[in-house]
Design a binder for these strands. Structure first.
Lengths: 144, 144
DNA sequence: CAGAATCCGTCTTGATACTG
DNA sequence: CAGTATCAAGACGGATTCTG
């Protein structure tokens, strides 16, 4: 008797990669996509191709270090194209590749979700924090 | 005189939250969603509600610490519901909330994207790595 | 302009050990 | 079972300096 159904085996054949598994390369990829700078840079480039300094301005709070590092990783993964115009001073433009564009709708939806559901999340956080206070701090505050 | 233009105020009215801005709470939320453990736990719970130890088994490589921490954050943000059955030993079940379910399709798409586009990304990485080698190491290897 | 390189303090991780 | 506590290692972030 097989441990997997035919349907399950078909699913595996389609996927081939399984991000749940630590050894699977797709897990590494998932990890590199699960990054706030990656999300923000990708969304920014999705709105319009940009030069290095413009990206920095569009995403207040990134350090040069993180911006450069993020762009390098994205370039290495084939999501972003870096093109240098050898003027003086040099001009460097970053654009999404076709692969990058295929990811954009997915990633930008997350950013949108975060922006749109902030109120619900806040409510949940307040409730959680109030209850934690009641659970742990109340005994010390009974007479306060 | 207002510090914001009318256009800016209109944009704010539409979005209210802007994840590009470091001070915006939605940016914190985005950052907490942009996490590999969050993605994997959410996907796992999307497939079926689970107990703590089952999650650990479904996601090989998570430390207890990270699993617990991730679950706590998700619970605080209202994405996950934690329910304790006071048996001996205790039984704890985790399920997605309605809010969590609203995020699930978005987040699971990322995991799928990573699994499905792994080949293209590999190709890109190989190309990048070969070129870096050529750019930086070749001069030292001319006669090798 | 678009970085690379370096120092350095802080925050996160992950492994290990212990608990009700 | 479902965690908590702890500690060392590494990643991250900021500021600064330098380059072509």
């Amino acid at each position: 008797m097989p441990t997997r159904t035919a349907a399950q085996r078909r699913t595996e054949a389609k996927h081939a990669y399984n991000a749940y598994l630590a050894q699977c390369p797709s897990r590494q990829l998932l990890a590199s996509l699960s990054d706030k700078w990656v999300t923000l840079v990708l969304c920014a480039l999705g709105e319009q191709e940009s030069r290095y300094s413009m990206l920095g301005r569009k995403i207040p709070g990134v350090s040069q270090k993180m911006l450069t590092q993020t762009l390098r990783t994205l370039e290495r993964n084939g999501l972003v194209q870096r093109s240098v115009t050898p003027t003086v001073p040099v001009r460097v433009d970053y654009t999404l590749t076709a692969l990058g564009h295929s990811l954009l709708p997915v990633i930008s939806t997350i950013k949108q979700w975060a922006e749109q559901h902030m109120p619900q999340v806040r409510t949940a956080q307040d409730r959680y924090d109030r209850h934690s206070q009641a659970d742990h701090a109340e005994p010390l505050r009974r007479l306060a």
